[in-house]
Each structure stands twice: as C-alpha cells, then as structure tokens.
Nucleic acid binder design. Structure first.
Lengths: 229, 229
DNA sequence: GGCGCTGATTAGCCTAGCCTAATTATGAGA
DNA sequence: TCTCATAATTAGGCTAGGCTAATCAGCGCC
C-alpha cells in the first residue's frame, strides 16, 4: 500500500497544522526554518515556538537541531502537503463555484482547511476537474503527496529581451492582487522584458500591444517561466 | 438597525458554539436544559458543564438557575440560531452541490459550521436559492434569526385514518436515514394511517399504492403534519 | 419530619498553547 | 582569543476546557 496525504494517524490540532505549513514554506528553499522566522510568520512569540518545536519533534513531525532550526520529517512533510492541497483546492473552489475573488479567498481557505474532511476536498477537486494550480498559479499537491517544482524566476530577475509567461503571483497582499487583476496580470499572461533601469530599478515589459513599467517590489511578486520566442 | 445573526461581538469558541446549540435544542420544548442532559449530548462529564455554564452566564449568553438548569438569553439564542442556520445551509449545499447523501452530511457540517464565514454561508444559500429546509426537513433560520415553528406530530401519535404529509425526520442515526431513503420516506411524502396495534404497537400506513408497517421506534422519528384529505 | 437517592456543584488536577522575564549559546568582529 | 549582540531556550505563569473525587442540594417516600 502506498502512503497518501490521507493518512491521519493521530488527528492534528489546528495549531500544529499551521506550524507544519509554515515550516514547510520556510524550509522549502534552504534547509532549516529558524525559530524566529516561524514566530514571525505565525505572529507568536519565539518561546511559544520553542515549546511547540519540542512537542512536534517528540511526535516525529520535525527534526530539531538546537540553535539551528527545524526541518520536516517525511511524516511532517506529508502532513504539510496535505494542508497545502486542502488550502489550494479550497481557493479554486471558492473562486470558481462561489464567486470569490482571488484576493479574498485566502482567509476563508485558511479557516476551512482545518475543518474539511479528505472526502470533501476530493469531491471539490472532482467537481473542478482536478485542478493543478490554485487561483494565484501555485501548484496543487496530488492526493499522493507529489508537488510540481517549477523553476521560476521573478520578473525582477528576468533577463532583458526575454519572453516570459507569468506563472504565479504572491498572494500575501490582497491590494496587490486587486491591482494585478485590474492590469490583467494573471497566470498565463505572456510578457516581453524590454528594459530594466539600473540599480534595481523598474522593469519595462510589453504585454500584448501595451507597454508597462513594473517597479521592483511588484516585479519580485511575479514569478515567471522563460518561453521560446 | 435590526439585529441579525451576523452579529459576532466577541468571536465564540468552537466549544461555546456547541454548548449553545445543545442548550437551544434541549430548552426548545420545556424551559430549562439540565446539566446532565447537556453533558450527555456533548459527551463530556457533568462538572465540565458546570464550569462552562459559569463562563457562559458571565458572558450573558445563558441564564443559570442553580440546581434547575439553564436557558438561553436573547443574545445566546441568536448565537445558537446562527449556528443552526450554518449547519443546515451546509447540509443542503453538501447534498445538492457536492453529492453527499442525507445520511452522511451531518458530521461534515458539524465541523464546517465553526469555520465558515457569514459571507460563505450566504453565498451558499444564494447558490441554492435560499432554501427553507435542510435535507431532513428541518427549518432553516433566516439571517435575521427567525425560525419556522411548525406543529408537527410523530407518526406514532398520528390518529388512525388521518392523512399526513411527512415533514421532517430525525437525523441522529445514519442507518435509519439510509433505510428511510430506501423506503422512499422523505419529506413531502403523503401517507394515510390505516391502523395501529395496541400497547404502542406498530402503525400501518398506506404510501401511494403500497402498505407498510412502521414500528413504534421508527414512527417516533417521523414528524408529520395533518393534511386535508 | 427525616432518610437517602439522584443530580449538581466544588475542589483540585491536567494538557495545549500562549505569554513575559531571565538565562544561555552562537558566531562575527576587534 | 575575547567580547558582545543576537537568537534561542528555560523558567514560570495564564486561560480554556477537559477530568475524577468529594461534597452538597433537592425532593420523593416512609
């Protein structure tokens, strides 16, 4: 039998699920998630993290190297990916079936992800035709725990003259999401980098027939894939 | 401005919401809900109820008469009806939009009702055309906190020769719900009471062209309204 | 009117998660 | 190598919401 995201040996608390998700995101690039970064992301005090880290490593969900940070075990990673699948399926469902906008699904999904059953998530996924990406372009883990790892670069790092496809946008600021939707900057959009001002200045891109100047901060929130012209 | 079920002055905990729902159901007929009945319904020990009762009356959600029981205040009743609306809208949504059966929606709704926002509930209600009854025939409170109080009698109490419409079925036993669905005994069904055996014996009814014998226990779970023949 | 059963309450304890204040480890730079 | 800022941890406390054991109130029955 193959392990799937459905395994739920001991039901996890809401709080534990949140810690695992945050640790997943923080350790996805480098190796370790630090106590203070976890605390900042969850908006709790660092000693609260130390306490939870102790409990999580006792249950085998994370590995803790004192004064270095933590990493997910395989078990912890599966639990985290299960939450991420739930969150992203919920976001797609709320936007496609219930008229939510892509800038206000996050909060709702954040609460629901702890309450839904695996069955409900799979029914939603089925009703949506098993989507592969959430509304912001983030890949949705499969029920088996696989997740696409695309090599994306931000628009701020894209080479001049490159032809790009916008694949994913950061969803951490609703106002930015509204602005992006307004500008038609949604996943799938093709754009050509025309020039970039020196000293981390704005990037000028062509989108279809139009030309836009994108400031560095915004450009850092736009993840793209290179495209054969 | 009119008070609505959307008021949420202080967000309530999951546990508090459960207590209020149970107290609502227990005190809907008689006046007071007893400590031990609440404890039985929530599957907690009686002292846990005493403790929570103290907190709930301090926050003004219930009124406590020591050694007698508790009653909801208006504020508590509104909070309870809000949860009941959520629960019943969720049940309709899960059955109508996501293929759940009427015997397995309860558990899912029980968890989701604490996590959904008012906005999501109203979006679901809108997508369903603002239903008035849940899948088991129970009336859905309005967003304003009104709930239909129909005078229903159980099939076990229905007079012989009466013509009835089945309006609502108890949803506390999934196996019974499956049986009822199998027998076509769903809300809206017309039936005629043909006879009843003495000493609380079974009731014989005609449903369309068919005749069925319904045992007392089952008959007590079927709530009906008299109909002009 | 008093006995005793039942049900409610109080006393005291536990766990999960949070907090602040105090302490300790790490590692960069003099 | 030593110092010191920063980050992490420990110490100790708080609340919500459970629990068991012990006590107390209400009331039916003799």
């Amino acid at each position: 039998m193959h392990a799937t995201l459905r395994d739920a040996p001991t039901p996890l608390t809401r709080s534990v699920e949140d810690y695992l998700k945050v640790i997943y995101h923080l350790s996805s690039q480098g190796g370790f998630a630090s106590t203070s970064d976890i605390a900042a992301m969850l908006e709790v005090a660092p000693p609260s993290v130390s306490g939870m880290v102790k409990r999580l490593s006792e249950t085998g969900l994370i590995e803790h190297v004192p004064y270095r940070g933590v990493q997910l075990t395989n078990q912890g990673r599966r639990a985290a990916l299960r939450m991420i699948r739930r969150h992203r399926i919920l976001e797609v469902y709320l936007t496609q079936q219930l008229g939510y906008d892509w800038d206000n699904v996050h909060e709702e999904a954040e609460r629901l992800e702890h309450a839904v059953s695996d069955e409900l998530i799979e029914r939603m996924a089925g009703a949506l035709g098993d989507p592969h990406y959430d509304p912001h372009g983030a890949p949705i883990p499969t029920p088996g725990g696989e997740i696409e790892e695309a090599e994306l670069i931000t628009l701020a790092d894209a080479p001049v003259d490159g032809v790009l496809e916008l694949r994913q946008v950061n969803d951490d600021d609703p106002a930015r999401l509204r602005y992006l939707a307004d500008q038609g900057l949604t996943p799938g959009t093709r754009l050509t980098v025309l020039e970039r001002q020196p000293f981390n200045g704005p990037t000028t891109v062509r989108i279809g027939a139009a030309t836009r100047v994108v400031g560095r901060e915004l450009a850092l929130a736009l993840w793209c894939r290179g495209v054969q012209a």
